[in-house]
Amino acid sequence: MRSTAAALTSLMALATTSLVAGPAEARTSSSSCALPRSPAHHSLGLDTWNTSYPKPDDGLDAVMVFLSFPDAVPRSSPARLAADHFPATSEFFERASYGKFTLRPHPRRDWVRMPKPSTAYGISRDWKPSHRSAYLRDALSAADRKVDFSRYDIVYLVADPDAPGVDSDATKVVNFERPMTYDDTEVRRVVTVFEQHPPDRNVLAHETGHVFDLPDLYHRPTDGKGDWDTYVGDWDVMGSQFGMAPDLFAWHKWKLGWLDSRAVRCVTRPELLTLEPVGAAPMPGGSLGTRLAVVRTGADTALAIEARSATGNDGTTCTEGVLLYRVRADAASGGGPVEVVDTHPRTGACWDRSVYPQLADAPLGVGETFTLAGASGERTRIEVADRTRTGAWTVKITTA
């Protein structure tokens, strides 16, 4: 499939076809491929926005509160811990959103003293609800004496990483069943940060994605011993914060409002189109071009097609090409809402760096073709014809 002969055959087939992309007004509206939002936690349906989450369509303010404990003397300053995450996290979202969203951090300069030792809260990944509630109640009550919560959209509670009861595996977003009220403001969720110094790479970008209603894309093994990265590998920070290509999928960017209808193509008939890399900056004049092609495959499912290259947040990727992935709007966070299609199932790549080498070579390269069969017998054929001088990818999509 990767041979020169295959590439020539592919290009000749495209050269002889009469297929051309029609004018913008003749294209099928992208809204016809916008899957409906389901009751699933962090559903990837995007016909409506869940208004209990802040939408990152302009700018949001985030306060960082640093918590110390009676059983430890902090060895790092709040300023040093804040620098572990910012400006890197803001820069990640600046690039991911094409400059449309600004995350403004407001780190406190002092420590907020917790009333109990760190070991009293039983901090762990699978936290007992009673211990977690006690921690959050104490932390927010202690912080309320110094913080005006009405000024902020996001709350990061950063624990002293050197306290003996702090477990770095417990960093997560906590959603309250009932909002807590401080300064006449409802606090619906907080990010509890228990990272060591220095922290995991991109960890706060991952957790902040949950604040914006994005799901976990990793697969948590039932016994805790299997591989976590079988669904998406390196290809999205919501799958792994250690990924080589951690930029958000174009589907996520569509959901968050960073891609509009002009950047998304709903494919219902054979089309030849040019895909700009997801991580590339806007073109001169601000245009994004086409960043996402979508084939609707069911009431709650779709096939997404996008280009990935070593630019922007994906600057450390070791493979480039056209990436295919299935989207399920009815799947909950952690339940496989996105699954990358491995177009090279017999090979892998980047064994020394990838979180899941089997998917590191998932994208299609120039001259390659891949066909997917649907549950009802429908077939979608994706053929990568060429790469332009500017780094975009020419792709032929045929549905039948």
Rank of each mutant, 00 (worst) to 15 (best):
V327M: 04
G257S: 14
K255W: 02
L292V: 11
W258Y: 14
A302W: 00
S287E: 15
G334R: 01
G298K: 02
N313D: 14
R326E: 14
W254Y: 01
T343M: 06
L259I: 08
L288K: 13
G334Q: 01
S333H: 02
L272N: 02
S333I: 01
T316G: 09
G257V: 07
G334K: 02
L272R: 12
D260E: 11
C318S: 11
R326A: 14
A332K: 01
L288M: 14
M283W: 14
R346S: 08
G312T: 13
T297K: 12
T290H: 08
W258K: 14
E276I: 13
L324T: 03
T343W: 00
A293L: 09
R328F: 01
G279R: 13
L323I: 01
V278W: 10
P270A: 01
G315K: 15
L292N: 08
A332Q: 08
L323V: 04
E276N: 11
P345T: 05
R328A: 04
V295E: 01
L272G: 06
G312F: 06
T311D: 10
R308C: 05
R328L: 03
V340K: 06
E271A: 13
P282M: 13
D300F: 03
G257H: 12
S309G: 10
G279L: 11
W251K: 03
G321C: 03
V338K: 05
R262F: 06
A304D: 07
V294L: 06
T316S: 14
A263S: 15
K255V: 09
T319S: 12
S309Q: 07
V267W: 02
N313C: 13
V327G: 04
L288E: 13
S261L: 03
E339W: 02
G321I: 01
S333G: 00
E320T: 13
E306I: 05
D260L: 12
T347S: 12
A307D: 10
T317D: 00
N313E: 15
S261F: 00
G286H: 14
P284M: 14
R346F: 10
L256R: 09
S333K: 02
A329R: 00
H252F: 13
Y325V: 07
V295W: 02
C266H: 11
R262I: 06
S333V: 00
A302G: 11
V264Y: 09
L275N: 07
D342H: 12
V341Q: 07
K253F: 06
D260G: 15
I305E: 06
P282T: 13
D300G: 07
C266D: 05
G289W: 01
G336Q: 03
A263V: 07
S333D: 00
L275H: 04
W254I: 00
G348W: 00
G321Y: 01
R346V: 00
A280K: 15
P284L: 12
L259C: 13
R308Y: 08
A293F: 03
D314H: 09
R296W: 03
R328T: 02
G334H: 03
